[in-house]
Amino acid sequence: MTRSVFSRSQFNSKTIIKVPILLGLVTSLSACGQSSQKTLVLTGSSTVAPLAAEIAKRYEAEHPGVRIDVQTGGSSRGIADARSQVADIGMVSRSLKSEESDLTANSIARDGITVILHGNNPVKSLTNEQIIGIYTDKINNWQEVGGNDAPITVVNKAEGRSTLELFADYFKLENTAIKADTIIGDNEQGIKTIAGNPNAIGYVSVGAAEYNVEHGTPIKLLPVNGVEASTETVRNGTFPISRPLNLVTSGAPQGLSEEFVKFAQSSQVKDIVEEQYFVPISQ
């Protein structure tokens, strides 16, 4: 199975899939005289974007004459763009909030967030209270939780990120109560920071962490509330910190949007979802 490294590393900034534009141009030229080319624009979460881009590639291959642009910019942008209909579909890596009920969420996969440590850290598990203690600076040394005598480096995400929201929500932490030593942007920066610091603790998406462990990055995933962190436990719903990956539309999806959403939820793309270490909705 070839898993494109491109999708994880290159999607951190605003990315537009240019190849489909060219392909679309060629097909529209060759299909001159037929109905004009249809375009679908997706914007939003940088967690969902690589997945959506892969699904879009396959959809385009099967439906010549359709062009799909995938752009990142965070879940908030996905919500805003779907609402203002700047984009046909918004990508959002969380459940919709109550004030967002004007939008329709269509889940295409699930993702989990887990706590990670450096691979050489002897600590094997932490209770929820210990994690809260570490993140609010009440526990400062690994010795207090059964590790080496070394100060703890707390790695937190930048304000506004959906990973931070989900993490803080589960541990009932106030944004303002978290006392971090390092603040990072995306998953990859977090994993590199923790891989380079034996005394660091952080949290990233289970999929990204598992992928890095398989490729020899010196990090380890901690169980949360006694449940092992893996795509398996996220899939069967036992892993406590997990979230749906949604395609959000203003009202029920219609026309091309509806077709694409159905395609993304179908078993036709299950292998793509699994390749990216997310958990498919369809069984």
Binding site: A150, P151, T153, D181, G196, N197, N199
Partner: peptide
Amino acid sequence: GLVVLVPLINRWHPPGS
């Protein structure tokens, strides 16, 4: 800096970054 310098400073005086 992230993969070389920060771990080096961390060994001397954490957190490094």
